[in-house]
Structures are given as C-alpha cells and as structure tokens.
Write a protein that binds this DNA or RNA. Sequence first.
RNA 1: GGUCUCGUAGUAUAACGGUUAGUACAACGGGUUUUCAUCCCGUCAACGCGGGUUCGACUCCCGCCGAGAUCACCA
Length: 491
Amino acid sequence: MKETRTRFAPSPTGYIHIGNVRSAIYPYLVARQTGGKFILRIEDTDRARFVEGATELIEDTLKWLGLEWDEGPIVGGPNAPYFQSEREDLYLEWAKKLIKTGRAYLDETAPEVIDEYRKADNAKKVPFLYRNHRPASADFSPEETLEKWQKGIPLRFKSDPKNYEWTDEVMGEMKTGPEVCDDIILIKKDGLPTYNFAHIVDDAEMGVTHIARGVEYLSSMPNYLALYEALNLEHPKFLSLPHILAPQGNKKLGKRDGAKSVTEYKSDGVLPEALLNYLACLGWNDGTEKEIYSKEELIKSFSIDRIQNSGARFDEVKIYWYNGQWIRKLVDEEGVEKFYSRTKDFWPEVAENEPDEYKIKVLSIIYDRLKVLADLKTMTDYFFVDPEIKPEMITDNKFLKKLSETELIELLTLTIERLNDVKDWSEENLQKELNDLLEKSGKKPAEYFSLVRISVSFAPFSPALHQTLSVLGREKTLARLNAVRTALTNN
RNA sequence: GGUCUCGUAGUAUAACGGUUAGUACAACGGGUUUUCAUCCCGUCAACGCGGGUUCGACUCCCGCCGAGAUCACCA
C-alpha cells in the first residue's frame, strides 16, 4: 500500500494562531497513525507578505506542540528544498508541460483592463469569468508561446469548463458545474508561481496523499481538479476543515478578532498537551465520552470521518479547564519533581534565588489550584518574601469582621504561644495542633483558620493551612504571626 | 448577484428511523466539620422553520429561513 504522506504548508506571514493550527494537527495525526510521513513546506511565493522570522516562529510552534515533521526545513528530506521560493525552476518546468499540451497561455493584459472586464460583466449581471476575455495570445501555438515566454509575462491556465464531481473526506460528495471553471494565473509577473499552481506541483513531487486545508479552498476545487487532469496527475485526498469561529459573531477566528498566537499560550503557561487536546477535540471526537487525550491517544483514536463539518466556536475557558486537568494529571502520574522542571519560567521574581527543593515543596501544595503556570507568579510570592501587613485585610475579611480587635489579638497570642512549643513541624502534626487550637479558640473553623492564614500570607487564598505553615517553616510562621499581632496592637 | 458549505442547550459535542435527546465546559445550588481551587452530588438548558416519506423522524427527501466561504498576478 502507498505510504501516507501529509503536509502542513503555511505561508511565513506571521505567527501561527489558534485559528489555523488545526490544519497542522490533523494531517500530523493522520501521518502518525498510519506510520506515514508528515511534511512541513513553507509557501513563500508572496514576497510582499513575507515576514522575517516567521518561518522560525512556525517551526518553534510546531516543535512546542509536539508536531515534529519528518521532512522539511532543518531536517531536510528527499524533496528538498522545502521553501517554494527555492523551487522556482521546478514550477517553470511543469508550466512548460502545460504550454506544450496547449493548456497554458501568455497573458500581458494590464490589471486595469481586467478590472474593466470585471466591471462590465458585473454591470451586465453576468458572472465574471476571465476565460470570456481571453487575449489573442491564448491562441498562439505551443511553440510560439514557448518562444515568446520570458520572465515578466504571466502565464494563465487555459480552462476547459465542465462538470466536476469529487469526494471531500470531510464534507462528503461534491459537485459543481462549468460556471466555476476559469483561467487562473499559474505563474505571476515576478516569475514565481501562484499558490494555486505551486501547491499542486509540490504535492505531486512530494507524493502527498492527503491535503488538509480550510474550507475556504473548497470553491477553488474545480480549478485544482482541472489542473490535476491537465497535468495527468492522480489527485490526493482532500480534507476541507471547517473554520474555528471567533468568540463573538459568526466569522472565522482571525488575528483581527484577537486570535492569539500559539506561542502566547505557551508563555501564559498553558501546557502543549492541553492545547493539543483542546484543539484536536474542537470539531472532532471519537464517538466516546472521553475528554482527555494525550498525543499518543489522539494518534490512536483519530479518524478523518469523524471530523465535524460545521464550524466550531473558540472557547478560551475550556482551554484553561483542559490545562488544569493536564497539570493535575502530569503531577499525579510523573511526580512533582518532574513537573517542576516545566515551571521554571513561571515563578515570581522574588523566588529567583530560592533553592529548587523549596520551590518543589511550594509547587506540591499549590499545583491543583493552577489554571495556567503563570498563576505561580501571583499565587506564591508570600512563600518567598514577607508580605506587606495590611490590617484591613483582616478586619474587613468576611469571616473576621464580627471579631473585635482584642479578640483577634488574643487568638494570635494563643496561636503563637502554642506553636512556639511545637517541635514537629510536619504537615500531619501541624494539622493536629491546628485542630487543637481551633477547639481552644472556640471559633468556627472559617474564622480561626482565616485569621491565621491571612496573618502569614496576606493573600486572598492559599493552600490548606497546615500545608502552608509546614512549607513556610517554623521561623517564618512565628515571625509573621508576631508581626501581625504587633501591628494590630498598635492600630 | 453566481457557485459552494453549514444549522442539536450560552459553548463543544453524542445519537446514525424507535432513548425521559446522552456527555463535557460555563452558569447556579449543595457536600467534602478552613479561604480559593480540586473532588463529589444536584439544578437550569437544545433538535432553525414548514411540508412530505414512514406505524414512527434530530436522523431520509423537498422548500424556506438563518449563518458562512469564495468569485486576486493572496495563500
């Protein structure tokens, strides 16, 4: 059986955003599950839109998501180069094949003239088709065309309008009439091919078996089919992927709607596992009620025929849910130490010089509260530096409002005196001591524990109190309790 | 305007002629004798409309309505 070969073929016009990365994920999964090859090809024939550094950004994004490619930039491959701008001669060669069979012609018609044609047709309420305005050069013999062709003269396909029927692996059986077939540009004025022509040549050269791309290409299909036919090529399978919709409205998610780059989620501390999981399952499911898929599980269960054929709305909240699930899953399965290595870039600045062992302890009691890793920055600073004492955070607290200041001070004194005598500072023992203190305080748990928690952290919330105190250590705990008692006394 | 695609709760989806239309996120309420979160339990909430076909239609057919894509020397 023929080897499955899929590809992701982005233009280096900027970062890969969340709305179009799915057309990399699905072909990747298809290639992996069949033991085939996944190719990365850079479609940089539009020099005006080329952005410096975009290729590297694309490469980094794919690597981060775990979509390693078998052929393409960096890794090379049998069909190198993988940049269209470096394959110019190849397209010219293939274009000549079309000229020789009388299926391509030179066209020097000025853009302004073409505009006139378009306006005239629109005025007549006739669909604008360039083939109704073919210039005299369309009738040149192949020899004459070949002889006169030089760089700077665009080349057009000479279409042969007819009905087309084909299968789209996602959308199903398709058919169109001759009215959509036209003379598309093959080679531009600058000597480089258009996407329409280049991708067909490259896919053929590279032996691509499946093309996955956005549904917006669906309406160009008849012209592509005509080209495959004229070039005597068997066409690959087509997967038209429905759009990911912006959170508001019904338009596809684009940079203008604030579609973030994939790398932005990376720097927020979203795990690649979570993002891949979310994106793969947006518009695809395996028919079961499973929600959490690792890359390996996706490779195993993915199937083209279960790709949804309607657009799916982008929902950032769900990404965070997946991320929380993945954080807990990874810590539970691989341990905190291993997970800690992935959090290095997300600690608050004040933690910079703290030992790893201490940060691991902090992580172990706080990880199940994280939505994104960047939450570490805002949720853990009191473990590393004494918090600023703000008495109002105690007196205005919803559980402590009812208590008088003298009462608060008494409770703190009680706590300090007792903890002073505690030698065993383990979580277990502290839990016992704190429960004991709670009983002695005669307060409700929410009241007494809130007082102690806020006194040591001045944070809106923290891990379970016995864990917080244990990690914080005896010295810091007592010092902070004392400091708060003094502050309240002087208030 | 031509051509094409899509249409189940707020969102993502299941169902593939017969179910009280299932699940997850979100929202709301409760529990886990401490906050926040996790975890657990519960509540709210959907087949765009109208015709057929059929004993029976979310499911098949037709029409309508709504939404989107495309009609570049951009991809």
